[in-house]
Write a protein that binds this DNA or RNA. Structure first.
Lengths: 241, 241
DNA sequence: AACAGCTAATTGGTATGATCACTTGTACTT
DNA sequence: AAGTACAAGTGATCATACCAATTAGCTGTT
């Protein structure tokens, strides 16, 4: 993929489909700066003719790259290259979390543990008062109780605000994709039915205190502990799949 | 009939495209176990009729999910659900690394630093003698010199073997996608022209020693230092984009 | 009966053209 | 001058035909 794109045109690309080749061509155009962020592509009809393939094929290529967050389609207006920023490109990452089951969910949480603890530590070192206040607001939303949906949304916003404060958009996009809403809901429901919600509250509070104290090491360990709690819960409830 | 009648009058699925709805339906079928790993889907013609859409549309949906690593198409044989394992689902992750530039590359390295240091620490705690020997082999391949391509391949194999030894396939797949071959080549060429290759060698050696000593903390810090070295180099050479 | 090779049915891949739906710019109306 | 209506451009969907790869079944030989 990386290596074969630019080189030997015949050997590698001979057997793959027309649409696949079109995908590679467009990717190469972007990688080499021929197509830039925000730029408009030729119309489907023109582009198909230009590449010597049918409209069906170029459409498949365009849709594939749209799925990957590289292109954006505006009905009636044309096809454009996205901003190519991490949050565009990593949107599909969430699909993994959505359809993963069993052991893979545990593995995903381990990834989240590594990333979120690093991000929370970084956030502690550079978070602004305004950002910290926002984190506080989400924390209080969680404490207010309410429907599971509201709790889940507040929970996500809490962690998202922290990770964003770390100043690494790429990491934020990945962490965000790692935990789907349906999975978060499962965790909350599970903790609710077992009366363990207070434990989550405590952990959130500790994370906030570490951030407020601008203590990276405390932030790192409290964040890791929090994800680990979810991890442990999941291991004990894997039978539900 | 399939979509609008079956569920709530969702404002969500009202405006999205036919193909997009088909994608969601297939994903839901997989998430709910209606479609299992390795299972075969109806033929394009049957499936299209079943969902009440055209073959073109179902094809777009199928291709999109193929790109995401969820489905696998076998020409003449049918469409199948993949293993749904992380290495299938995260293959597209590499696209981000391929087309990223500038600041995003730095951010990607920071993600890699967090993940690879965690994975290397885990590997130190559980690596087998056989796995350690494999790591050693790749390390010696790097030391032997040779073409840049060979060095790059050996470098990738070295890190890959370590991350795999951590026992988390998901993390391994992500880390693997984080560093494209073209980027690795850039790093090696850059260090070669500045005579700093020996620094990379030293770092690799230290990582290996930490693994051989089964010392997780040493493994964590040596791995982090190594990625940080690349990170620092990149910051100083961002003008090349 | 067992096996090899060929044939035909099955199924995905591509192409084409028609038609629908959305966006945008422009000319017209008020 | 502002707003509206229209028309051109462009993506969305569909239907159909034909090409290409695979698979299963048949045929023929041994």
């Amino acid at each position: 993929m990386t290596s074969t794109a630019g080189r030997a045109p015949d050997a590698e690309t001979a057997k793959i489909s027309v649409a696949q080749r079109a995908i590679e061509q467009i990717k190469t155009m972007i990688a080499e700066g021929e197509l830039r962020a925000g730029q408009r592509l030729p119309t489907e009809r023109d582009f198909a003719a230009q590449l010597g393939i049918s409209r069906s094929s170029i459409r498949e290529a365009i849709r594939a790259l749209t799925i990957l967050g590289v292109l954006e389609i505006r009905h009636g207006a044309g096809v454009y290259v996205t901003s190519l920023r991490p949050d565009d490109l990593l949107e599909t990452f969430g699909v993994v979390a959505e359809i993963s089951r069993g052991q893979t969910l545990v593995e995903l949480l381990q990834v989240r543990r590594a990333l979120e603890s690093a991000a929370t530590a970084a956030a502690a070192a550079r978070i602004t008062d305004a950002e910290l206040a926002e984190v506080r607001r989400h924390l209080e939303r969680i404490g207010e109780g309410g429907s599971v949906e509201e709790m889940v949304a507040a929970d996500r916003d809490f962690h998202q605000a922290i990770v964003r404060a770390a100043g690494n958009e790429t990491m934020a996009a990945i962490v965000d994709g790692l935990s789907s809403m349906t999975f978060r809901a499962r965790v909350w429901r599970g903790h609710h039915s077992s009366g363990a919600v207070s434990r989550l509250h405590q952990e959130h509070e500790r994370i906030y205190q570490a951030l407020a104290a601008r203590d990276p090491e405390a932030a790192r360990s409290t964040a890791a502990t929090h994800v680990l709690e979810v991890e442990t819960w999941l291991r004990a409830n894997l039978g539900d799949d």
